[in-house]
């Protein structure tokens, strides 16, 4: 008798759960699908161009440059990225790019900082560095790099210090005003030699920290993206600058949590153009096979750069523009 009762209870429970879970899973799947890089509006025009030129095999830099130019013009003439209230004939250029940089310690940090050292700090501003919880050596390297650059900057160009409307914490805002950058820490999603069984838990922990961090550091407000369209409603429209956001990653695994957080933000309804472009740069050490981080991030990233032509031939969405380090 009892058993029969329990059976029925369990059965009803399972059916109810399924009835709730199935539509939810379906909605989530659709959300996920439109959040993936191939299906983002910003990327679609570019992808079409890419496949027609088949860049993965072309290594000529001039061809590459003209192709990139044409991709940009396509993207900029797209209605979603033009400003509605502009009186200019051509769409206003993006004036600033919010930059979040993941530093994965050791060789990853070294490669990434070399890439970052070439960026114009007046355009890529502010810069938010995200490092592993105990990675003090990366913090030191960032401070050294930024100190060297800030001295140059003060003498050459004054950066526009007008603050973004994005919701930074007070201390972060202060750091940005002082040096143009912040450094934030997240727990590693997997330690060296950690068992694959416990990895989901540590990954979940990183994700929990990454989600609010990503929301605060990388996501843009509507006014950041379309400053002139909000001019009627906002009295301080002249304090906003047209912005975009980018998240630079090169491994190891912890940056997967950051990328997932961005995809998560898109799934939760943050408008596409307000989320950062995900950029992954595979290590120079990877010639014929992707790293674990590379394999995980390949389907998620908007831009996937490799430093050897063989990899670009193997992975159609990967781009090769030469060795970068």
């Amino acid at each position: 008798m009892d058993l029969h009762h329990v059976n029925r209870l369990v059965l009803t429970g399972v059916i109810t759960a399924a009835l709730i879970a199935l539509p939810l899973a379906f909605a989530a799947a659709i959300r996920l699908y439109i959040s993936l890089p191939q299906n983002r509006r910003r990327n679609r025009a570019g992808i079409a161009q890419l496949s027609s030129v088949s860049p993965s095999t072309s290594s000529s830099s001039t061809a590459r440059r003209s192709e990139l130019r044409s991709r940009t013009s396509v993207r900029e003439s797209h209605p979603s990225s033009t400003s509605t209230g502009s009186s200019d004939a051509h769409p206003p250029a993006v004036q600033r790019c919010k930059t979040t940089i993941f530093l994965g310690s050791g060789g990853h940090t070294a490669e990434m900082l070399q890439l970052v050292s070439g960026l114009d700090t007046t355009k890529y501003y502010p810069r938010h560095y995200v490092v592993g919880w105990d990675d003090n050596s990366s913090v030191e390297k960032v401070r050294r790099l930024e100190a060297a650059r800030n001295q140059q900057e003060i003498t050459t160009t004054g950066i526009d210090q007008r603050a973004s409307t994005s919701p930074l914490k007070k201390q972060e805002r202060q750091e940005v005003e002082e040096g143009g950058y912040t450094i934030r820490r997240i727990p590693r999603s997997r330690h060296v030699h950690q068992s694959m069984l416990t990895t989901p838990f540590t990954l979940a922990r990183s994700l929990l920290v990454a989600l609010p961090l990503i929301k605060r550091l990388t996501c843009l407000t509507k006014a950041d993206v379309h400053p002139s369209s909000s001019s009627s409603s906002s009295p301080k429209d002249d304090t906003t600058i047209r912005q975009r956001s980018v998240l630079l990653m090169n491994g190891p695994g912890t940056c997967f949590a950051l990328a997932l957080a961005v995809i998560g933000a898109r799934m939760l309804g943050v408008p596409d153009e307000q989320t950062p472009d995900l950029v992954f740069i595979e290590s120079f050490a990877r010639v014929k096979t992707l790293s674990l981080a590379g394999k995980l991030l390949y389907p998620l990233c908007d831009v996937f750069l490799v430093q050897w032509p063989d990899l670009a031939a193997l992975y159609p969405r990967a781009q090769y523009i030469g060795a970068l380090v």
């Binding site: 440059r65 940009t72 993207r75 990225s81 114009d120 980018v246 750069l305």
Partner: peptide
Amino acid sequence: NFLNTRMGV
């Protein structure tokens, strides 16, 4: 240069 083109800055 690659990133400037991509991000439009």
